[in-house]
Amino acid sequence: MNAAAEWSRRVLIAGGIAAMGWWAWLALTSVPPHWWLPWGIWLAGSVALNDAIIAPAVTVLGWLVLVRLPALARGRSQGRVDAAGSGPVWVGVLLRGAVMVLGTLLLVWLVSLWSAAR
């Protein structure tokens, strides 16, 4: 990295630390103490939600949809499993895109059901 990049890097880190410092100030002065615990739980829960549920689920689903099922389909048609083969790129693009869109819609739909039930 040249000097400008290194300077940019330091400015970004310093700016980030300043912003987080402002967050701490806001937390101490603008947020009532009895909100700190649920706030902390929701923050920690956000990491847990991703690392323990969403990411593993996406990994397993991705393996099923993009590796295992196509391999089984090819195996049926060719009499053998050839997992290394692949279809046109645009099929994969659309398939993954559809999974992301439908996955997001599913999440939001669950929220809307929850909202309607209350």
Partner: peptide, 27 residues
């Protein structure tokens, strides 16, 4: 268990600050 507006606003500074630090580290 907390007010949305105040905490969402405060956490925005945390997210923005952490993003800046992360970009700086990974530059």
């Amino acid at each position: 268990g907390f007010s949305f507006t105040g905490v969402h606003y405060a956490t925005a500074w945390l997210a923005f600050g952490a993003a800046l630090v992360h970009v700086g580290i990974k530059l």
